[in-house]
Nucleic acid binder design. Structure first.
Lengths: 146, 146
DNA sequence: ATTTAATAGGACATTCACATGATAATAGAG
DNA sequence: CTCTATTATCATGTGAATGTCCTATTAAAT
């Protein structure tokens, strides 16, 4: 579903959100904990820092922290840079022009579904994931309304 | 959302379904109509023939026809060979073991959504798409003729 | 000031999906 | 049988995503 780069980014950010309470988290630590290629992860984190999702500190005792409150950090914010998920909302058949007015054969059937996926990434925050642990749909009450 | 190969396959099958009434459809015709690379499309069609979605006929007046009734041909049947969409139902964070019992942070939020997507591909048939034209959800006024 | 531990970042290597081109195999038509 | 239009198949090219390596830069600690 996600490119591996986007997936790494998301996992890393979640890890940082969970471990940055006592200061910056080092790349090596994340790479080891999540079994990711260290140098490649380094670039991804740097990219996340450039887009404001993370903040980096160099030198001794350096590392990465969240660049903004976990409550205002959506999965879309994290993943967008590496995986243009918005593009998936467009035509499933790849037509350059596909809209309500010029609908392809699958347009109406695909539209609502793709919008749900987009909403999922937009509305889910890092805070929700790391705090609520799992948000089990049966044991926990559902979201009342929107 | 789909790999371009899978997208080509789907578009090609829909085209064949719409044009195979008067005999087999040639690769060149499909490639030209859909603006797809001819040789690459040829391989995709052959692959679809090997999986039973299409049937090929060689020689003069040859080409491709549907290998089974459009009513029993799901989008999943067409696309599966080229794009393991079922795999997207698995963990969004790429964990090898992610289930209701061993849930990752996003498991419960992602599960229902990914199941909907899987259902879409399994339940939507080629027949529905080529016959119903568009299946407009709000106003059914335009669907009458054509 | 020097040492040390960390990120920054360019250059390069690898892999794979995507695509092209040429040739072989098949079968209908004359 | 021969010609020709079609699919079948193999060899190869291309570019983007992924991954590695090495050096530069930064800042705390000594």
């Amino acid at each position: 579903m996600l490119s591996s780069t986007a997936e790494y980014a998301l996992r890393a950010v979640l890890y940082v959100a969970q471990h940055a309470a006592r200061g910056p988290v080092r790349v090596s630590q994340i790479a080891q904990a999540l079994t990711l290629p260290r140098n490649y992860l380094s670039k991804i984190l740097h990219e996340l820092a450039r887009s404001g999702v993370l903040v980096s500190t160099r030198g001794k005792h350096g590392g990465f922290r969240l660049g903004q409150p976990a409550e205002s950090l959506s999965l879309y914010d994290v993943v967008n840079r590496f995986d243009r998920i918005e593009a998936r909302r467009s035509c499933l058949l790849g037509r350059p022009e596909c809209s309500d007015r010029q609908a392809c054969l699958v347009h109406w059937r695909w539209k609502s579904l793709s919008e749900q996926v987009a909403r999922f990434f937009r509305d889910t925050t890092v805070a929700e994931l790391v705090s609520g642990a799992a948000a089990h749909p049966q044991s926990k009450r559902r979201v009342a309304n929107d």
